[in-house]
Protein backbone atom coordinates (compact mmCIF):
# COMPACT_ATOMS: atom_id res chain seq x y z
CA UNK A 1 0.00 0.00 0.00
CA UNK A 2 1.53 3.28 -1.12
CA UNK A 3 1.36 6.12 1.36
CA UNK A 4 2.07 9.80 1.05
CA UNK A 5 3.33 11.96 3.91
CA UNK A 6 1.16 14.97 4.67
CA UNK A 7 1.33 17.79 7.17
CA UNK A 8 -1.69 19.82 8.18
CA UNK A 9 -2.42 22.35 10.89
CA UNK A 10 -5.54 21.22 12.68
CA UNK A 11 -7.09 23.58 15.20
CA UNK A 12 -3.74 25.32 15.51
CA UNK A 13 -1.67 22.16 15.97
CA UNK A 14 0.64 20.70 13.32
CA UNK A 15 -0.25 17.08 12.58
CA UNK A 16 1.72 14.79 10.31
CA UNK A 17 0.88 11.38 8.94
CA UNK A 18 1.53 9.03 6.05
CA UNK A 19 -1.77 8.33 4.33
CA UNK A 20 -3.11 6.32 1.42
CA UNK A 21 -3.70 8.71 -1.48
CA UNK A 22 -7.36 7.69 -1.56
CA UNK A 23 -8.00 8.35 2.13
CA UNK A 24 -10.84 10.83 2.50
CA UNK A 25 -10.18 13.90 4.58
CA UNK A 26 -13.13 13.07 6.84
CA UNK A 27 -11.64 9.66 7.63
CA UNK A 28 -8.26 11.28 8.24
CA UNK A 29 -9.82 13.71 10.69
CA UNK A 30 -11.97 11.12 12.44
CA UNK A 31 -9.80 8.02 12.42
CA UNK A 32 -6.21 9.17 12.10
CA UNK A 33 -6.51 12.31 14.23
CA UNK A 34 -9.30 10.94 16.45
CA UNK A 35 -11.43 14.07 16.13
CA UNK A 36 -14.84 12.42 15.96
CA UNK A 37 -16.90 15.60 16.24
CA UNK A 38 -16.92 15.78 12.43
CA UNK A 39 -19.64 13.36 11.32
CA UNK A 40 -20.41 11.38 8.19
CA UNK A 41 -24.05 11.50 7.12
CA UNK A 42 -24.24 10.76 3.41
CA UNK A 43 -20.78 10.07 1.86
CA UNK A 44 -21.95 12.10 -1.15
CA UNK A 45 -21.50 15.82 -0.40
CA UNK A 46 -25.22 16.19 0.20
CA UNK A 47 -25.83 16.49 3.93
CA UNK A 48 -23.00 18.69 5.21
CA UNK A 49 -22.53 16.80 8.49
CA UNK A 50 -18.79 16.59 7.69
CA UNK A 51 -18.32 20.34 7.09
CA UNK A 52 -14.98 21.67 8.29
CA UNK A 53 -12.93 24.76 7.46
CA UNK A 54 -10.13 24.23 4.96
CA UNK A 55 -8.00 27.36 4.80
CA UNK A 56 -10.91 29.31 6.27
CA UNK A 57 -13.53 28.06 3.84
CA UNK A 58 -16.30 25.62 4.76
CA UNK A 59 -15.91 22.38 2.82
CA UNK A 60 -17.52 18.97 3.00
CA UNK A 61 -14.65 16.78 4.06
CA UNK A 62 -16.20 13.57 2.69
CA UNK A 63 -15.36 14.77 -0.81
CA UNK A 64 -11.79 15.92 -0.26
CA UNK A 65 -8.80 13.59 -0.15
CA UNK A 66 -6.54 13.96 2.84
CA UNK A 67 -3.59 14.47 0.48
CA UNK A 68 -5.36 17.52 -0.98
CA UNK A 69 -5.22 19.10 2.47
CA UNK A 70 -1.42 18.80 2.67
CA UNK A 71 -0.07 22.09 3.97
CA UNK A 72 -3.53 23.44 4.77
CA UNK A 73 -5.07 24.95 7.87
CA UNK A 74 -8.03 22.93 9.10
CA UNK A 75 -10.54 23.90 11.72
CA UNK A 76 -13.04 21.44 13.11
CA UNK A 77 -15.83 21.71 15.68
CA UNK A 78 -13.29 20.82 18.37
CA UNK A 79 -11.46 24.06 17.54
CA UNK A 80 -14.39 26.37 18.14
CA UNK A 81 -14.09 26.65 21.91
CA UNK A 82 -11.21 28.95 22.86
CA UNK A 83 -9.62 29.00 26.31
CA UNK A 84 -12.66 27.41 27.89
CA UNK A 85 -15.02 29.88 26.22
CA UNK A 86 -17.68 28.64 23.86
CA UNK A 87 -17.79 30.25 20.43
CA UNK A 88 -20.87 32.49 20.14
CA UNK A 89 -22.28 30.05 17.56
CA UNK A 90 -21.99 27.19 20.06
CA UNK A 91 -23.61 29.38 22.67
CA UNK A 92 -26.40 30.27 20.24
CA UNK A 93 -27.15 26.66 19.41
CA UNK A 94 -27.40 25.82 23.11
CA UNK A 95 -29.39 28.92 24.02
CA UNK A 96 -31.89 28.75 21.17
CA UNK A 97 -32.42 24.96 21.16
CA UNK A 98 -30.70 24.76 17.79
CA UNK A 99 -30.15 21.02 17.99
CA UNK A 100 -31.99 17.84 18.79
CA UNK A 101 -30.05 14.65 17.99
CA UNK A 102 -26.86 16.68 17.54
CA UNK A 103 -25.54 14.76 14.54
CA UNK A 104 -25.75 17.58 11.98
CA UNK A 105 -24.77 20.17 14.59
CA UNK A 106 -20.97 20.30 14.14
CA UNK A 107 -21.25 20.72 10.37
CA UNK A 108 -24.09 23.19 10.75
CA UNK A 109 -22.07 25.25 13.23
CA UNK A 110 -18.95 25.25 11.03
CA UNK A 111 -21.03 26.59 8.14
CA UNK A 112 -22.54 29.22 10.46
CA UNK A 113 -19.11 30.30 11.73
CA UNK A 114 -17.86 30.71 8.16
CA UNK A 115 -20.94 32.74 7.28
CA UNK A 116 -20.55 35.08 10.23
CA UNK A 117 -16.85 35.55 9.60
CA UNK A 118 -17.69 36.71 6.07
CA UNK A 119 -20.94 38.51 6.87
CA UNK A 120 -21.35 39.68 10.47
CA UNK A 121 -24.96 40.75 10.05
CA UNK A 122 -26.80 38.33 7.80
CA UNK A 123 -30.56 38.53 7.37
CA UNK A 124 -32.72 35.43 7.58
CA UNK A 125 -32.58 34.77 3.84
CA UNK A 126 -28.78 34.94 3.87
CA UNK A 127 -28.62 32.55 6.82
CA UNK A 128 -30.96 30.11 5.12
CA UNK A 129 -28.97 30.28 1.91
CA UNK A 130 -25.72 29.69 3.81
CA UNK A 131 -27.02 26.55 5.54
CA UNK A 132 -28.78 25.21 2.46
CA UNK A 133 -26.03 22.62 2.05
CA UNK A 134 -26.49 21.29 5.58
CA UNK A 135 -29.36 18.95 6.33
CA UNK A 136 -31.04 18.58 9.72
CA UNK A 137 -33.31 15.55 9.66
CA UNK A 138 -34.86 16.54 12.99
CA UNK A 139 -35.95 19.54 10.85
CA UNK A 140 -34.95 22.06 13.47
CA UNK A 141 -34.22 24.82 10.95
CA UNK A 142 -36.27 27.55 12.63
CA UNK A 143 -34.23 27.28 15.80
CA UNK A 144 -30.99 26.86 13.86
CA UNK A 145 -31.67 30.20 12.17
CA UNK A 146 -32.45 31.73 15.57
CA UNK A 147 -29.21 30.30 16.95
CA UNK A 148 -27.16 31.85 14.16
CA UNK A 149 -28.89 35.21 14.60
CA UNK A 150 -28.16 35.02 18.34
CA UNK A 151 -24.50 34.38 17.54
CA UNK A 152 -24.36 37.19 14.99
CA UNK A 153 -25.70 39.66 17.53
CA UNK A 154 -23.31 38.40 20.18
CA UNK A 155 -20.31 38.66 17.85
CA UNK A 156 -21.19 42.24 16.90
CA UNK A 157 -21.25 43.33 20.53
CA UNK A 158 -18.05 44.77 22.00
CA UNK A 159 -16.07 42.33 24.09
CA UNK A 160 -17.15 42.21 27.73
CA UNK A 161 -15.69 40.39 30.70
CA UNK A 162 -15.05 36.78 29.67
CA UNK A 163 -17.57 34.28 30.89
CA UNK A 164 -16.26 30.81 31.62
CA UNK A 165 -17.99 28.14 29.60
CA UNK A 166 -20.27 25.88 31.57
CA UNK A 167 -19.07 22.36 32.17
CA UNK A 168 -22.16 20.28 31.94
CA UNK A 169 -24.86 22.58 33.22
CA UNK A 170 -26.22 25.99 32.61
Amino acid sequence: MRTVPISVTVNGEVRQAAVEPRLLLVHFIREVLGLTGTHIGCDTTSCGACTIHLNGKPVKSCTVFAVQADGAEIRTVEGLEQDGRLHPVQEGFWQEHGLQCGFCTPGMMMTAVALLEANPNPDEAEIRRAISGNLCRCTGYVNIVKAIRYAAEKMRQPEVAPAVAGGGED
Binding site: L35, T36, G37, T38, H39, T76, V77, E78, L80, E81, L86, Q90, F93, W94, Q95, H97, L99, G102, F103, T105, P106, M109, G166, G167, G168, E169, D170
Partner: peptide, 15 residues
Amino acid sequence: KRKEDPRFIRGKGTY
Protein backbone atom coordinates in the same frame (compact mmCIF):
# COMPACT_ATOMS: atom_id res chain seq x y z
CA LYS B 1 -31.16 24.66 28.52
CA ARG B 2 -30.70 21.08 27.44
CA LYS B 3 -28.39 18.94 29.53
CA GLU B 4 -27.16 16.93 26.52
CA ASP B 5 -26.10 19.94 24.47
CA PRO B 6 -22.72 20.76 26.09
CA ARG B 7 -21.26 17.60 24.58
CA PHE B 8 -22.97 17.93 21.20
CA ILE B 9 -21.97 21.55 20.56
CA ARG B 10 -18.36 20.64 21.34
CA GLY B 11 -18.33 17.62 19.02
CA LYS B 12 -18.00 15.37 22.05
CA GLY B 13 -21.03 13.18 21.56
CA THR B 14 -20.45 9.47 21.18
CA TYR B 15 -22.27 8.12 18.15
